[in-house]
Design a protein around this nucleic acid. Structure first.
Length: 209
DNA sequence: CACCAGGTTGACC
DNA sequence: GGTCAACATGGT
């Protein structure tokens, strides 16, 4: 874990918020829809996920019970637009079955819930944390590729758990803040110039971080 | 045509 | 502990 930045994470947050404004994340009508979206958005643009979610709702499959019983081949067609569609259709069925058989699982404490989610095939650290934060409303800071890039830009290097610990120990334990911060980082990441120090980076002032 | 997108897994070192 | 190919579609 290397930290060379001069700004605090709170200062970075304020800068991002001033620049991009409120992001209104996570777009979903129910906690279960967050779960489905979290799996579908893996390595895929959100616009493709919206289409797939629309398809699932149209077939009235956006609930754990229905989705767990859905025909795999039909599911594959409905989520095809998100890529890795065979994997995702299969994993979605299994994950849905788990949620159907464990109603109230989202009420468990954050760390316990995270551990259970990680045991599901197709749920890695980022997906688990996204579900804990956005579906269960529990404080877990989500680290994704954009977060790692932004941290690189700030001179902060580390693996997933190191970066997560860094964010969680640097910020007040605040669910709305965690939600907004991650959403802002994604927005920043989409416009990231691709270099560690980018001249037009909004986090840079006068050539300094 | 090459490359990337809001990752995860299993194999291997 | 870390690295890497495989997984697949859709957009620049």
């Amino acid at each position: 874990m290397i930290v060379k930045h001069k700004k605090t994470l709170t200062e970075v947050y304020n800068k991002l918020f001033d620049h991009f404004g409120k992001r209104y994340w996570w777009p979903a009508e129910t906690p279960f829809e967050v779960v489905v979206g979290a799996v579908l958005t893996q390595q895929t643009k959100w616009e493709n996920v919206e289409q797939a979610i629309h398809n699932l709702k149209e077939r009235k499959l956006m609930d754990a019970e229905s989705l767990s019983r859905a025909d795999v081949e039909e599911l594959e067609e409905l989520v095809r637009c998100t890529g890795f569609f065979r994997q995702k259709a299969n994993r979605l069925k299994n994950i849905s079955r788990f949620f159907a058989q464990n109603p109230g699982i989202l009420e468990k404490p954050a760390d316990e819930l995270r551990k259970v989610l990680l045991s599901l095939n197709g749920v890695g650290e980022e997906t688990a944390d996204s579900i804990v934060l956005y579906a269960a409303d529990k404080p877990k800071f989500v680290i994704d590729a954009y977060t790692k890039r932004m941290c690189g830009c700030l001179g902060i290097e580390g693996n997933y758990s190191e970066l997560q610990s860094f964010f969680e120990s640097s910020l007040p334990v605040d669910v709305p803040l965690y939600k907004e911060y991650h959403a802002l980082i994604v927005e920043y990441g989409k416009r990231f110039c691709g270099k560690k120090i980018c001249p037009d980076c909004i986090l840079v002032e006068n050539g300094k971080m």
